[in-house]
């Protein structure tokens, strides 16, 4: 297979969260698949969160811990009965520890077609400071 030829996608069961944090609301919680990459100026995170609307996504950065939380409303109507159920729906939850210092003011999040794109700009390298040691 050459690089230009794309491979066939494999079906994958969604990974359920095994979180140490206690969850206060009932329902299933899944770990979204993510891509994280870094350039000189920023860290970008892409997360697949199908079913999450922009308003139902919670992003929190506190003490270098980034938390993503997405709520999903069941898409089925009230009087629909299951015929086949291959995947389950539920919330999404994932936490990351960031090693770089992030410029919190400039964080930008965009939710489009169930994919979150989160840009976390790094703080501009502080000008080297010389600390005078007093004797």
């Amino acid at each position: 297979m050459t690089d230009s030829e794309s491979k066939a996608l494999q079906a994958k069961e969604k990974a359920e969260v095994t979180t140490p944090a206690e969850l206060t609301r009932p329902g299933l919680v899944f770990t979204p698949a993510v891509d994280i990459f870094e350039t000189d100026s920023e860290i970008t995170l892409l997360a697949d969160m199908p079913g999450v609307k922009a308003g139902e996504l919670n992003i929190d950065l506190h003490k270098n811990v980034l938390t993503l939380e997405g709520d999903v409303q069941a898409p089925e109507g009230a009087d629909e009965a299951d015929v086949i159920r291959e995947y389950r729906t539920g919330k999404y939850y994932r936490q990351f520890t960031l090693s770089q210092i992030i410029d919190q003011e400039k964080i930008n999040a965009e939710m489009k077609d169930g994919v979150l794109r989160l840009s976390l700009p790094k703080v501009k390298a502080a000008t080297p400071r010389r600390i005078a040691v007093q004797s």
């Binding site: 066939a8 996608l9 494999q10 079906a11 994958k12 069961e13 089925e76 109507g77 009087d79 629909e80 009965a81 299951d82 015929v83 086949i84 159920r85 291959e86 995947y87």
Partner: peptide, 14 residues
Amino acid sequence: SAAGVFPMMNVTED
């Protein structure tokens, strides 16, 4: 999954 083919599907009816 039931069929193991991407994409996984949920089928409902009314």
